Simulated scan of single mutants.
Amino acid sequence: MEKTQEVEVVKTAYFLEDRIAKLEKEKRQLANNKPQAPTPPLEPQEKFLKAKIVPYPEINPPEVQLPPFWKRGVIILGLTLVATMLSFIPVIGRVFSIVSLFGFWPGVVLLIIDYINTKKEKKRITQENIEKIKNSPEYQRKCQEIDKQNEAEQAKLDKENHEKYVKRYEEYKAACQEYEEKDLKEYNEQIFPAWSNEMTNLSNLIEQTREVLQEVYDKKIIPIQYCNKSALCYLTMFLCTSNFDLKYAIERYDAEVAKIMQREQIDIAKAQLQIGAETLKSQQYANWLNEQIVELSEDGNKTLNSIDNWQKADIAVREYRRYKSRKAAK
Rank of each mutant, 00 (worst) to 15 (best):
K3L: 06
Q5E: 08
Q5G: 04
V10F: 05
K11P: 00
K11Y: 04
L16D: 12
I20C: 09
I20L: 10
A21E: 04
K22H: 08
K25C: 06
E26H: 12
E26A: 12
E26L: 14
R28A: 14
R28W: 10
Q29W: 12
L30F: 11
N32R: 13
N32P: 01
N33W: 09
K34R: 15
L42D: 00
E43N: 03
P44W: 01
K50C: 03
K52H: 06
P55K: 10
P55N: 12
Y56T: 15
Y56M: 15
N60A: 14
E63C: 06
I76H: 10
L77G: 05
V82H: 10
A83T: 00
A83E: 12
T84I: 13
L86N: 14
F88I: 04
V91F: 12
V91Y: 08
G93R: 08
G93H: 09
S100R: 00
L101E: 05
F102H: 07
F104V: 08
G107V: 12
V109D: 05
L111C: 11
I113F: 05
N117F: 14
K119R: 15
I125T: 04
I125A: 07
Q127T: 09
I130C: 11
K132A: 13
K134W: 07
K134T: 14
N135G: 14
P137M: 13
P137R: 05
Q140L: 11
K142T: 01
C143P: 12
I146Y: 02
D147P: 07
E153Q: 05
A155V: 07
L157T: 02
L157I: 03
D158H: 04
E170P: 02
E171L: 09
Y172V: 00
K173F: 01
A175C: 03
C176Q: 02
C176F: 01
Y179L: 00
Y179A: 00
Y179F: 01
E181W: 07
L184M: 02
Q190W: 00
I191R: 00
F192S: 05
A194G: 04
S196F: 06
E198Q: 14
E198W: 07
T200M: 10
T200F: 06
S203K: 14
S203F: 13
S203N: 13
S203H: 12
L205V: 07
E211F: 05
V212C: 03
L213S: 07
K219G: 02
I221P: 00
C227W: 04
K229N: 08
S230C: 12
L232E: 09
T236N: 10
M237A: 04
N243E: 10
F244P: 12
K247S: 09
Y248K: 15
A249C: 07
A249K: 08
E251V: 01
E251N: 14
R252S: 11
A255Y: 15
V257Q: 04
E264V: 02
D267A: 09
I268A: 13
K270H: 11
A271T: 11
L273P: 13
L280I: 08
Q284P: 01
Y285R: 01
Y285S: 06
N287M: 13
L289D: 02
L289K: 05
N290H: 06
I293D: 06
E295S: 15
L296G: 13
N301C: 10
T303C: 07
L304T: 12
N305D: 05
S306K: 01
D308T: 01
K312H: 02
A313Y: 03
D314C: 06
I315Q: 03
A316Q: 04
R322C: 06
S325A: 03
S325Y: 03
A328F: 02
K330F: 03
K330H: 06
